Amino acid sequence: MNDTTTGWYKSSFCESSSCLEAASAGEHILVRNNTQPGERHLQIDRGGWNVFLDDIVKGRFSNL
């Protein structure tokens, strides 16, 4: 699902009302809590974001 007015995207795997959303912002990816969209967000450089996604695919966070 995406929010076309701001460019924020939420995973289609999100089954609850509390999920993370991500948006592209130039050389960075922004991440926020969708239940508090007006609050602060994380800003991650694209290299760090790609490492994070690779770690998810590799199962690095499966024990959390």
Rank of each mutant, 00 (worst) to 15 (best):
E15N: 11
E21N: 03
V57Y: 06
G47A: 15
C14W: 10
A22D: 05
I44Y: 10
L30G: 01
G26A: 05
G47K: 08
G38S: 10
T6A: 10
R46G: 05
G7N: 13
I44H: 12
N33S: 12
G26P: 00
I44C: 14
E27W: 04
D3K: 06
E21A: 07
A23P: 00
S62Y: 09
F13Q: 05
A22S: 08
I56V: 15
I56N: 08
F61C: 06
D55N: 14
R32Y: 13
V51F: 04
S17A: 10
I44W: 12
R32C: 07
S16W: 02
E21G: 01
T6K: 05
I56F: 05
W49S: 13
A25F: 14
N50E: 08
L20H: 00
C19R: 00
H41L: 01
S17Q: 09
M1V: 06
L53W: 07
C14M: 11
M1R: 07
D3W: 06
D3T: 07
T35M: 05
Y9L: 09
C19Y: 00
H28S: 07
V57R: 15
N33P: 02
R60H: 14
H41K: 07
K10F: 07
N34H: 15
K10A: 10
N33M: 04
A23T: 01
Q36P: 01
G48M: 12
W49N: 03
I44T: 07
L30N: 02
G59P: 10
L53C: 11
I44Q: 08
E39H: 14
Q43V: 13
T5E: 13
T5A: 09
S12G: 08
I56E: 04
F52Q: 15
S16L: 02
R60K: 12
G59Q: 05
N50D: 11
A22W: 14
S12R: 04
A25Q: 14
L42R: 02
S12Y: 01
W49I: 06
S18H: 11
A23L: 03
W8R: 00
F52V: 02
D54H: 13
K58Y: 03
V57N: 12
R40W: 09
Q43C: 12
Y9Q: 15
G38I: 14
A25M: 11
Q36N: 04
A23N: 01
V31Q: 04
L53R: 15
G26I: 02
D54Q: 14
P37V: 04
N50Q: 12
G38D: 08
L30D: 00
S12N: 11
G59D: 13
V31C: 03
V57F: 02
G48Y: 10
R46I: 12
N2F: 06
S11M: 04
T5F: 02
F61L: 06
W8D: 00
R60Q: 06
L30T: 01
F52K: 08
N63W: 07
E15C: 12
G7M: 10
P37H: 14
E27N: 11
C19G: 02
R46D: 02
P37M: 11
R46F: 12
T4K: 14
